[in-house]
């Protein structure tokens, strides 16, 4: 008793309901794993190793369509009798025994099993009878309605699929048309490209001619400069030479010589005047 009191006393002062409420209302996010190790490291993806054959876009000449025709989804299931027994089991009997043969065989076989008690009738058999009765009631009572509803749904589904297929076909046809139009516009693009190429070639030619012209004029300028330089040098040297010669000659003329020359000139002038 005392120990229980002690545990009571040791409990926190906050009431239990408050603790629960706080716990419910707290919205702390889930803690991220502390370690950086990838838990999936070293595990290979099982989907990467699945046996997978990708569908072919076109079939080659080796495709055997005679022995291996394309699988087609059936429209109706195979015929059955009594709700579930395949029709072909009856066809096996029909060749040997006629129409009633399979029924006789079935009835006699079940009679054999029952009479020898190979088929032991325990409680599941009687349960099965009631179950079959219920199934028959459901089948005949609700079967037509379910079939009607299912047929309507299937019609809707088929119509949807056909609509989708038509839409897809239309879309693909339009796509092909667009591609053809695009290809026809590509021809004009080709012309445009050619024109641009020719323009670029013309521009290149013009640049080449301009450059050759520049080279010619620059070379001519330099040659002219050289020519002018030579001319100037020659002129200057000539001038210098002539001035030097004149200077020396003038220096070499003595006053007597000058006088003689003067006399000679005068005499010449006289003779000239006489002749005139």
């Amino acid at each position: 008793m005392l120990s229980r009191l002690a545990t009571r006393a040791a409990q926190p002062i906050i009431s239990r309901s408050v603790v629960l409420g706080v716990r419910q209302a707290s919205s702390e996010p889930a803690k991220t794993p502390a370690s950086d190790v990838d838990p999936y490291e070293g595990l290979e993806d099982p989907a990467a190793k699945l046996p997978r054959i990708i569908a072919m876009k076109a079939e080659g000449p080796e495709r055997d369509l005679v022995n291996f025709p394309r699988p087609v989804v059936k429209m109706h299931p195979d015929p059955v009798r009594l709700g579930f027994i395949p029709e072909e089991w009856f066809d096996i009997f029909y060749k040997k025994t006629g129409v009633s043969g399979p029924y006789v065989f079935g009835a006699s076989f079940i009679t054999y099993l029952l009479s020898k008690e190979i088929y032991v009738l325990e409680h599941n058999f009687y349960n099965g009878i009631s179950f079959v009765m219920m199934m028959m009631i459901l089948h005949y009572k609700f079967g037509p309605k379910i079939a009607q509803y299912a047929d309507k749904e299937i019609d809707k589904w088929l119509a949807d699929i056909r609509e989708y297929q038509d839409y897809e076909k239309k879309a693909i046809k339009e796509n092909i048309q667009e591609i053809h139009e695009y290809l026809s516009t590509m021809d004009s693009v080709k012309d445009l490209t050619n024109a641009r190429r020719e323009t670029a070639a013309a521009a290149l030619e013009a640049t080449y001619r301009e450059w050759t012209q520049t080279a010619y004029s620059e070379a001519k300028k330099r040659l002219d400069y050289q020519l002018e330089l030579t001319n100037v040098e020659r002129r200057i040297s000539q001038k210098n030479m002539s001035s030097w010669i004149t200077e020396n000659v003038l220096k070499s003329i003595t006053p007597t010589q000058e006088a003689e020359t003067m006399k000679r000139c005068i005499s010449d002038l006289k003779s000239l005047s006489v002749s005139v």
Binding site: V73, K74, M75, H76, P77, V80, G83, F84, D151, I154
Partner: peptide, 14 residues
């Protein structure tokens, strides 16, 4: 044969 045809019936269940 019995289950996957488009307009099926209940025979495959039975």
């Amino acid at each position: 044969k019995y289950q996957l045809p488009i307009r099926g019936n209940a025979c495959w269940i039975y």
